[in-house]
Design a protein around this nucleic acid. Sequence first.
DNA 1: TTGACGGTTTGATGTGGATCAAACGTACCG
DNA 2: CGGTACGTTTGATCCACATCAAACCGTCAA
Lengths: 249, 249
Amino acid sequence: MAQVSYLFKEVSLPQLKAACSGCSLKELCLPVGLGTDEIAELESFIHRGRAAKKGEYLYRAEAPFTSLYAVKAGCFKTSVISEDGREQVTGFHMSGEIIGMDAISTERHTCSAIALEDSEICEIPFVQLEELCRKIPALQRHFYKVMSREIVRDHGVMLLLGNMKAEERLAAFLLNLSQRFQSRGYSPRAFHLRMTREEIGSFLGMKLETVSRIFSRFQDERLIRVSNREIELLDMLRLKQLLNGCSSK
Amino acid sequence: MAQVSYLFKEVSLPQLKAACSGCSLKELCLPVGLGTDEIAELESFIHRGRAAKKGEYLYRAEAPFTSLYAVKAGCFKTSVISEDGREQVTGFHMSGEIIGMDAISTERHTCSAIALEDSEICEIPFVQLEELCRKIPALQRHFYKVMSREIVRDHGVMLLLGNMKAEERLAAFLLNLSQRFQSRGYSPRAFHLRMTREEIGSFLGMKLETVSRIFSRFQDERLIRVSNREIELLDMLRLKQLLNGCSSK
DNA sequence: TTGACGGTTTGATGTGGATCAAACGTACCG
DNA sequence: CGGTACGTTTGATCCACATCAAACCGTCAA
């Protein structure tokens, strides 16, 4: 059962949900231009089906780097810790996303990855991926794009943290999650948050009380419905307007 | 005059200043493991010596991607613009740094790069770099590391923007510049800022008035001396302590 | 020299979000 | 079942930084 190659294509296609559930993946690999043999080779060295229980570290900062990890199912947070112990969540990662790329530069992990729910991951030994990239230009290109996309994402977070106010950040966060659930074939309107208010706050640069207050405010304004970690987006249009400095400006 | 290969090694060595001024670079390339032929090939397709005047765009967001750029001399800022027109400076880039990697993912630039002073850059056509990476594993690995380092840097900025207060951010900023000047063979104690207070503020997520006020406060406290854009770090130790939540905490 | 302009400093005031504190809900576990 | 722990909500207060405003300075061009 060839189940991992989908990780090497763009993760924004609706078919991805099907891919995850284990059907034939050949067509999903075509965008990368891999043939059957090449898929086989890729899968020969990927360690599949490793499980991580909720709360478990996938890797810790400082640990020596050997592999990248592809989230196969579930959800992870990655975070960096400053010298004086402050945590900054750098991202939430769901199925189809590759994490650990920060570790390539120093050959040690610079952030930690923790499972937010019971999850499954694929381990991708880096040296072997590198070698295969040399043989398969399309795979090489694809992997460069994956790394580049992470840089673009980080720039987006910098914009969010540097320029937006709490309300806007939270709207952006919800819309981002919505879109990612949608691209995985789930409802973009209603979903379950895997992370605590504190983790959301750490990611968005605000305190957990502020996250809670703004959720409540959004609910009062009929923008969303919150019940615990269940979120329903009632008015995505207005949420988007909130992002772009209301209607004018 | 082989003058560009140094861009493909770690930029943290003191010899780099010498490298920039144009002496033989062979030894500087050894860390990447390139032979003479390979250096020649690398340099065969790199367009060297392109100049950019102060204020000039090196590339603009949305422009199609063809090349990465290595800063040979001078200084650039890169910035993203949100849909509603807010600018976030994502970085300041000096000699030896490679910019444009964000564009690989979508094959369009996602940020703009502007020269902060008269500068020189090398243009590196991406397809040819890719091809050479396939032939030279050490170069491939090195380029992965360059991209990874950018991700690590971005995570550091996220920590700064998400967790630190204005004073700490500015201290971190000055110390970071200091270190980068030092690694290029310049004084880590005194240097010239190439960017305006507003650009610093945009990068650090604060207003230009706040930047100015904190510079003044640092000066009052004998931490630094500021005169216009000339900076002198008088007490680097205390600046570092400022970073790590003062002495205690 | 004069002016204009972009950048910087400094002051006065306002406010968004942090902090402190308490009560409440939910889930897990003996 | 009841208790403990963890996460969440909500209120009251405070403060860091934004905003608004004015003066100042260095540079360049006429």
